[in-house]
Simulated assay, not measured.
Amino acid sequence: MTWTNAFGKGSGWLLNKIVNGLALTRISPNALTFIGLLINIVAALFFGFARAQNADRMFVYAGLTIIGAGLFDMVDGRVARLTNQVSVFGAFFDSVMDRYSDVAIFFGLLVFYARGNRLFYVGLTAFVMTACLMVSYTRARAEALIGSCKVGFMERPERIVCVILGALANHWGVMAAALWVLAFFSTVTVIHRIRYTYLETERMKMLELKRG
């Protein structure tokens, strides 16, 4: 067994123990989802209250806090399945809270750059925040029309990992690079989903004409 396999099995074992423990408390999966949002707001506060003198330390705190929030994001669905509390509303609520979490994190970064008079990065962060929301919106809107639209690279897990890496390695300027990566790949993902939806709707139109 390689060390990566051992790490994966160990992580899975620990995650299952956490899920089982939470299931025993009978806590609502929606409550876990909301707690994840609150933790992400704490991360946003670390970003927003950072100053040039302590930015590296505050960004590390923010990155670690986002990792903690990610734990709740991983377990809420598992707890729902284990306790037979899976619901359509739960999926909807989870998606809405994810969007609020994303906005909170990027808003914290926006405030940091605004307080430092780094107006270019204020604009870049605002663009990234919008692009990330559009990634989710295009999928939701497309799936209301064509059933499934999972194309594109920059999904939420990839976005969160990018932000975490940027925060933990901000001392070396990685957060600025992370924002550029997010801006580019989120935009590419939106374009990909628009094109995919267009092709699928045209295909559906042709099928309808053939049936007619």
Rank of each mutant, 00 (worst) to 15 (best):
I18K: 11
Y113S: 06
M134K: 00
V96I: 13
K205Y: 12
A50V: 01
R115C: 08
G108L: 02
R159Q: 07
K150R: 10
R203H: 13
I191C: 11
R26G: 15
A167K: 02
L209S: 13
N20C: 11
I35H: 03
A144W: 02
L82C: 06
E143A: 03
N16Q: 10
L145S: 06
V188A: 13
V122A: 04
S11R: 07
A126V: 08
Y137S: 05
G77R: 02
R139Y: 02
K17S: 12
D76I: 00
E208D: 12
G63W: 01
E143F: 05
D56H: 04
L168V: 12
T187S: 13
C132A: 06
V151L: 07
L182Y: 04
R81Q: 06
Q53T: 07
G8V: 11
S186P: 13
G147L: 02
H192G: 11
L45R: 04
L37Q: 09
A50L: 01
I160Q: 01
G90R: 01
T197D: 12
V19G: 15
G116D: 12
M58N: 09
E143P: 03
V86L: 09
V181H: 06
V96L: 14
R141D: 05
R203D: 11
M129D: 05
G90D: 03
C162H: 06
C149W: 04
E158L: 10
F120V: 10
W172Q: 14
F59I: 02
E200L: 11
I194N: 09
V190F: 09
N16W: 04
A80K: 04
L182T: 09
S95N: 10
Y198T: 14
L24N: 15
V88D: 13
V128A: 02
G116V: 08
V86A: 10
K210L: 05
D94A: 11
A183H: 09
L71C: 01
L38T: 15
L110F: 09
M154C: 10
L82H: 03
C132F: 01
Y137D: 03
S148R: 06
G70L: 00
I66W: 00
T189V: 12
R211C: 06
V163W: 01
M154V: 11
A126C: 07
A31I: 15
R156K: 04
A178V: 07
M154T: 05
F120K: 06
M58W: 05
I191W: 12
A91N: 09
I191H: 06
G21H: 15
F153W: 11
G173L: 13
A126Q: 07
F127D: 06
A52Y: 04
L15M: 15
A69G: 08
F112K: 00
K210R: 11
A44V: 06
R26D: 15
M1G: 15
G147F: 03
G70N: 00
V161L: 00
D56P: 04
L168R: 03
V181A: 13
I105P: 00
F120Q: 09
I146G: 08
E155M: 11
F34D: 01
V135K: 02
G152P: 08
A44G: 05
I35P: 03
F112Q: 00
A23N: 10
S87Y: 07
L24K: 15
Y198A: 13
S186I: 07
I191Y: 11
K150D: 12
S87N: 07
L71D: 00
